[in-house]
């Protein structure tokens, strides 16, 4: 069980399906380890279903016109299903969609073990592997490796950095972060992580450029330092 969770606002954007793919991946890697957030997400998905129901109902009430779905469209759907059934030999096509693989989406994306990646040595005990190109969302997506017992040099972030621990653990002034733990740091955060437990620590980070807002600007709060 993880102890550093995405905040409910982030989890809601995940439930709504509106996060960018790199951010969704961070949340997804957290969910892998966190039953508490899986339960919370279940509830948020129920809320999504209610929103879908009530929003369309109030739209219908307001405009006095139902968003009709026609019988023609239903026939089209049934014809497609019949055609499909005729070409498939198995009588239960659904069985094909069951994934037996327990690989995480990150493992599927990388296609290799974390140790085998083309790591680039950076400052001190930190190595980095940039995977932004897999996504093309404009966010900087990196994997980081902090060698066992190693210490990263003190650094600051431009923009907001969301990090999830993939393997091992690290500690910094904000606390101890084990596999699955998530931390959001904004540009004011200053941290100096140390890898724990005598093993290499691997993390996934998404760096989002600072949001340019004037006047009403309110900085993103780090949910873990309240």
């Amino acid at each position: 069980m993880s102890s550093h969770h995405p905040d409910e606002v982030l989890l809601m954007e995940y439930s709504a399906g509106s996060l960018s793919e790199p951010m969704a991946l961070c949340v997804r890697m957290h969910l892998e380890k966190c039953s508490r957030c899986r339960g919370q997400l279940d509830m948020l998905n129920s809320l999504g279903a209610i929103m879908m129901d009530t929003s369309s109902a109030s739209h219908i009430a307001a405009t006095h016109s139902a968003e009709d779905v026609s019988e023609d469209l239903f026939s089209t759907i049934m014809n497609r299903l019949d055609a499909e059934q005729a070409t498939t030999t198995t009588d239960k096509p659904a069985a094909k969609t069951v994934s037996t693989s327990r690989l995480t989406p990150l493992a599927k994306l990388l296609g290799k073990e974390l140790e085998e990646l083309p790591w680039k040595r950076q400052l001190g005990d930190v190595s980095v592997c940039d995977i932004s190109n897999y996504f093309g969302t404009g966010e900087r997506v990196t994997l980081q490796k902090l060698v066992a017992g190693g210490r990263a040099p003190a650094h600051r972030h431009g923009g907001t950095e969301t990090t999830v621990v993939l393997h091992g653990a690290f500690a910094d002034s904000n606390g101890v972060f084990e596999a699955g733990d998530m931390v959001v740091l904004d540009e004011h955060g200053d941290h100096r992580p140390v890898a724990l437990h005598g093993e290499d620590c691997y993390t996934l980070s998404v760096l989002t450029a600072p949001v340019q807002l004037t006047g009403r600007f309110s900085r993103m709060l780090n949910p873990f330092i309240r």
Partner: peptide, 8 residues
Amino acid sequence: EDLWQIPG
């Protein structure tokens, strides 16, 4: 599906 479905 992998990315958005609750794992497990």
